[in-house]
Amino acid sequence: MSEIDADAAASQKLRKSERVKRKGNRTSEDGDSAGLGKGRAAAFVAPAMLLIAIFLVFPALWTLYLGLTNYRLTGFAATHPRFVGIDNYVNALTDSRFLNSLGLTLLFVLGSAVIGQSVLGFAIAWMMTRVRKGVKSVVEFFVLLAWIVPSSVSTFLWLALLDRNNGTLNTLFGTGTTAWLLQFPMQSIIVFNTWVGTAFSMLLFSSALGAVPPTQLESSKIAGAGAWAQLRDVIFPHIRSHVLTNTILITLWTFNTFTPYLLTAGGPDHRSEILPVYIYRLALSEGSLGQGSAVSLIMILINLVIALVYLRILREKKS
């Protein structure tokens, strides 16, 4: 198939170049501003399309297919899956465990990404514009460290921190034997994820803040603007698009993150079972691959919606 394609592309290219010679340069008129011609353009895009097809489109379609069966990891249905139509989707949407999980995920995204990472990341970046360079480097180093330490290591540290019997937190604050991960599972993973991911927002915002013209800040100061007024009327208008980019990226990452599993495994009693953890437990621990696929597809759709909203907002801003 690829050889035929290449031949076709080559001959098309030849024809195209002849046409270009005959009619003069009309490329910009038909939208071909790079002057590549369709064949070459296709050849450039093909590897990317192939990768997307193999690693994105194919798994998504396969997930769609599996979600329509009662496929299981073990047992009879592992070799003889039956087509069950949209049963899995109906089950998911009417299952209180799924709805609980969806609610927890939204809370998790809102708490740890939209509020936690963005606000904290911005606050640190903002403060770092007013301190000496040495202090800035040290702070940034530690924030980055939380981001780059492998999650298996950092969750182990957090388990030691939050442990009920010999945990660092209980020792420091004299909180007795508070079982943080059991009594406050959602709060724990929200704080944890904020801690892990703040570095990205911080980096993005510090470069954005660097682009705010100092002259505007100076003149606003002379005009008597306080810190809040400066933030709202001078800085924010400059970094609005960065805020948007940051929010959408961390929303998607947080929506899909699996790391909290290492802390609470979704427990106790499903109280921190965010969607990725729910899918893992459903598909692999409980072996319901079909049902798990259906929920995965629902999750893909939610991700797509978030991405579309983002693209729409960006486009509106440009026009």
Partner: peptide, 19 residues
Amino acid sequence: SSMALLSLTLTGCIGGGSS
């Protein structure tokens, strides 16, 4: 054409392996 290719791959993908 890519859909056709994919659905070819999909057909009998599950279950086929182990039996």
